[in-house]
Design a protein around this nucleic acid. Structure first.
Length: 918
RNA sequence: GCCCAUGUGGCGGAAUUGGUAGACGCAGCAGACUCAAAAUCUGCCAUUCGCAAGGGUGUGAAGGUUCGAUUCCUUUCGUGGGCACCA
């Protein structure tokens, strides 16, 4: 009987579906385990082999936990709002709802073939009204809350109102508050709401009449059409994530993310402690006497204030216009015009040093020294105060700037500054620094700040790099805001009016005044009490809380019953790529914290452990075409000709050898008449390039094809066998045969192609038990630590050993099958039934490892002399140093290598090795 | 420019975290079975010197620590990814 994987997999797919084996109950009595994948955006291109890497890993772990007796939640859904569907609609006129539906169907069919254990009854789609109803509801929770600075948590805005009515605030008294107009009150409240609206800068393209995302702007012009893009102020919605900066930082201590992942989040939040210092400006423009100008800088190194040699102000600041001197006006204006012409990307990538002197001088408050004030694009308006005090002897950028513009440098760190480069050292006593001379960083910083505060010209300041998160998009395919604008006041919809369904549109172009497409729907926008908000929520809205909805996906009265979320609780294992390191992960963490503060859930970190899967890159194949001809020359001979390299489809290249007949059929016979110049051995060899997997490079491989050819079990195991899940690696189908052979070999332990059944019900020998238990130990350990590639190799070793031992015994084989279920569920279930089981293997009991079986009494020790292994000697494990020394010195080979010399020292590490030092 | 990751045979990778480098697999070579092919099985397979026995070298490069380094430290080069020049 052969291993007919296609039949077997179909059979169990149907059976499992009929039996609802993957249905997950909210069974509060059972220990739970929650495994989650980052859900995909259902793109039109379908799945390629890169997608399932993480899904397979999480599926293996879920099935493993299930075998271990857990109630495992391992759901899947779709992040189905987003720009590509809208873009596609603009191009083809097909409604996003239609294309999204189609794409989801394709994705699901592909996923099901690979054999994941999803309970599709729990599927969520962020673009479904039953889902986004609750996204809107949570938005209203945010809108109706504020961050209490004293208790460091979110509270209902009604409490703030109560406080204002009775006690007022630092800005107004209770009486004043009560006499405010509604609009005035709302304005104050808007400044405290967690979801709030204010004017913010967006990338505006006048020609397209629309707002563009950063990646749609290239070199200051729109990616589509190349039209100019400018910064424009528009009313936008934001989430007050900055209020949670500290808690988002602290929370990192409690979760199991990789260090680099935590580092990325910390960098994004960018907490720094320093001081804000005011510097007076000395030279004022004529006509501005009487008004006193100051520059306020933010610095993390107030201790270096005596090393300040110049100041740099962001060119965008209004202050620049006020302080520039007549002499420098034209130079400054010219420089500002230059900066405006440059995109953020340019400013970031540029290495050349630019700047312009304003003509103004600031005064060092402690020694009265005159400090020239410059403007330069390396100082950003949006961070800190938009101005810095430059200390060139301690800061690399300041140093280069000073050098470039020949600004004299003050040395405050003595011999630690060479004049060649800056030295940001903190642990040396300062010189040239008056009252902090001899002090080091910590003490000096404190003394300086104290003095600043005393003089009233500076204060201690904690700064965050992170800004509030923009939460509105001038787009169609997203959640509509449940907000109505009434005379400039944002009025929230009542809960009962949710969901506010996304209305149907026929055209996807921008609305008036840069509004989103919804702005075109006059009848929809105009309601009795005002005008609807026409922007929609961003992609991350729906994905910020989806892990909660899986727990209780059909609840019509709440987003997720508290009892249910108390049970499933945090996601125990979250699997996904690093590209979401800051965005999605940070937003989910924020939403979780807010929902926790408001009492809707009982935990304030969503993901307990994060596993990052690596990116699978494409391995492109290139053919060399002789220029202006239809001749193709093999890669090894290309230097003899003038060639163009063209991409060929990886699916008809075996390794690097092109299948010429397939190639000729490609693209409707475009190359049917091509001629080929071959290598000496008659092969046509392709060039190889590792790059992103994409359709245009013909380097995508569809999992469906591989599942059909080798079976899903082979495909699953091969993806794992490629290497560690966390590592990025190029895809190469070549090695899949090896994994497939392994499964066939396993099959032949049960069945012979000719004789049929060969498995037997006999007592295993000790040696056979040893093979089994060694495997149990290894597979369990490797699965626990997500080392799936080594687990696959352990399975191979096990099957090789059993085949060599001609062990066809049910008692052994059956246990191996259980170990294999997470990795290759179909073949495991099939063989499980063949040996006589009638219930599903998915709920079998995981075998227990018996250490007694693996106890060894002796070991083959490597014996080296001066670190070089010279021989192996088998010794009992009980031996002590003296006995060992005696035995090995008698050894002939060792004696030969010692050449009569006496060893200086003999190192003996039990169960490891022996080293003789001569 | 900054940050993070990574570098081991022809290839994907392994190495109990300081203890026999190259497990397992692919590819390749030789052989068995077969009329033949497929499938399967057996053996070889880092490199170099040697008929062999047996040596030398070898984990991007150069140093260092150690009885012993793929593993730890310093410097350096290459590749991949990210970024908001963050004071």
């Amino acid at each position: 009987m052969e291993y007919k994987f296609n039949e077997i997999e179909k059979k169990w797919q149907d059976k499992w579906k009929a039996d609802k084996v993957y249905k997950v109950e909210n069974n509060f009595n059972k220990p739970k385990y929650y495994v989650l994948d980052m859900f995909p955006y259902p793109s039109g291109a379908g799945l390629h082999v890169g997608h399932p890497l993480g899904y397979i890993a999480s599926d293996i772990y879920s099935r493993y936990k299930r075998l271990k007796g857990y109630n495992v939640l391992h759901p899947m859904g779709f992040d189905s709002f987003g720009l590509p569907a809208e873009q596609y609609a603009i191009e083809t006129g097909q409604h996003p709802a239609e294309t999204t539906k189609k794409n989801i169907a394709t994705f699901k069919a592909q996923l099901d073939k690979i054999g994941f254990c999803y309970d599709w009854e729990r599927e969520v789609q962020t673009s479904g009204p039953n889902y986004y109803r609750w996204t809107q509801w949570i938005f209203l929770q945010l809108f109706n809350s504020y961050f209490c600075d004293t208790c460091k948590k979110a509270l209902p805005i009604s409490e703030l109102i109560k406080k204002y009515e009775t006690k007022g605030s630092s800005e107004f008294t209770a009486d004043e508050w009560n006499n405010f107009s509604t609009a005035q009150k709302e304005e104050w409240l808007m400044q405290r709401r967690l979801a709030f609206s204010k004017y913010g800068e967006v990338n505006w393209c006048e020609v397209l009449g629309t707002v563009l995302a950063n990646d749609e702007v290239v070199n200051g012009v729109s990616e589509r059409g190349g039209h100019p893009v400018v910064k424009k102020k528009m009313r936008q919605w934001y989430l007050r994530i900055t209020a949670y900066a500290d808690r988002l930082l602290e929370g990192l201590e409690t979760v199991d993310f990789s260090d680099s992942m935590k580092e990325m989040q910390r960098n994004w939040i960018g907490k720094s402690e320093g001081a804000e210092i005011k510097f007076e400006i000395q030279n004022l423009l004529a006509g501005t006497q009487g008004s006193k100008f100051e520059i306020e800088v933010y610095t993390t190194r107030p201790d270096t204030i005596f090393g300040v040699d110049f100041m740099v102000v962001a060119p965008e600041l209004d202050l620049v216009q006020q302080i520039k001197t007549t002499d420098q006006t034209s130079a400054v204006d010219e420089y500002i015009a230059y900066v405006k012409s440059r995109s953020d990307v340019d400013r970031m990538a540029e290495k050349k040093i630019t700047g312009c002197f304003t003509g103004a001088y600031a005064v060092n408050p402690f020694n009265g020294k005159q400090i020239p004030v410059w403007i330069s694009e390396y100082v950003l308006a949006g961070y800190g105060t938009g101005a810095i005090m430059a200390v060139p002897c301690g800061d690399e950028r300041d140093f280069k700037f000073a050098q470039h513009f020949n600004i004299p440098i003050t040395n405050i760190i003595g011999k630690h500054f060479t004049g060649e480069e800056a030295n940001p050292i903190k642990e040396v006593p300062y010189s040239n620094s008056e009252f902090v001379n001899g002090m080091k960083y910590a003490e000096a910083a404190k003394v300086v700040i104290d003095k600043l505060e005393e003089k009233g010209i500076g204060k201690r300041k904690v700064n965050y790099r992170m800004r509030d998160a923009g939460f509105s998009r001038q787009r169609y395919w997203g959640e509509p805001f449940p907000i109505i604008w009434n005379d400039g006041v944002a009025v929230a919809l009542e809960e009962i009016d949710l969901p506010l369904e996304l209305p149907h549109v026929d055209k996807y172009g921008p609305g008036p005044e840069g509004e989103g497409p919804l702005g075109n729907l006059k009848d929809w926008v105009k309601v009795t009490n005002g005008l609807r908000e026409t922007s929609t929520m961003p992609g991350y809205a729906g994905s910020s809380w989806y892990f909660l909805r899986y727990m209780d996906p059909h609840n019509a009265t709440t987003f997720c019953d508290k009892k249910v979320s108390d049970y499933w609780n945090q996601v125990d294992l979250y699997v996904g790529g690093t590209e979401h390191a800051v965005g999605h992960l940070l937003y989910s963490r924020l939403w979780t914290k807010i929902l926790y503060d408001l009492g809707h859930i009982g935990f304030d970190e969503p993901f307990k452990k994060l596993l990052n899967q690596g990116m699978i890159q494409g391995s492109s194949r290139l053919a060399c075409r002789v220029r202006n001809s239809n001749k193709f020359v093999s890669y090894g001979l290309k230097n003899k000709y003038d060639v163009d390299e063209i991409y060929v489809d990886v699916n008809f290249v075996d390794g690097v050898e092109l299948d010429i007949s397939e190639f000729k059929k490609w693209k409707n016979g475009e190359y049917a008449n091509a001629e080929f110049i071959l290598e000496q051995d008659g092969k046509y060899i392709c060039g190889v390039e590792t790059e992103k997997m994409s359709k245009s490079k013909y380097n995508t491989v569809n999992p469906d094809v591989l599942c059909k050819k080798y079976g899903a079990d082979t495909f699953r195991m091969y993806e794992m066998f490629l290497g560690p899940v966390e590592a990025s690696k190029p895809w190469d189908t070549k090695g899949i045969e090896g994994v497939h052979r392994f499964l066939r070999k396993l099959w032949r332990l049960f069945n012979d192609d000719v004789k049929g059944k060969i498995w037997v019900d006999e007592k295993p020998t000790e040696a056979e038990l040893k093979i089994l238990h060694r495997t149990i130990k290894k597979i369990e350990e490797d699965t626990e630590k997500f080392s799936f590639n080594t687990a696959v190799s352990a399975f191979m070793i096990c099957v090789n050993d059993l085949a060599d031992a001609k062990c066809y015994k049910k008692e052994i084989l059956e246990k191996v099958l259980i170990l294999l279920v997470p990795y290759a569920p179909y073949i495991a279930e099939e063989l499980w039934h063949q040996v006589g089981n009638t219930t599903t293997i998915l709920d079998a009991q995981y075998p227990t490892f018996n250490p007694a079986l693996l106890v060894e009494s002796s070991k083959e020790y490597p014996v080296s002399i001066n670190g070089k292994v010279r021989t192996n000697i088998s010794l009992a494990l009980t031996l002590e140093q003296v006995e060992v020394e005696e035995i090995i010195l008698q050894n002939e080979i060792i004696q030969k290598w010692l050449e009569g010399k006496t060893p200086k020292k003999i190192i003996y590490v039990k169960n490891k090795m022996i080293n003789i030092v001569v």
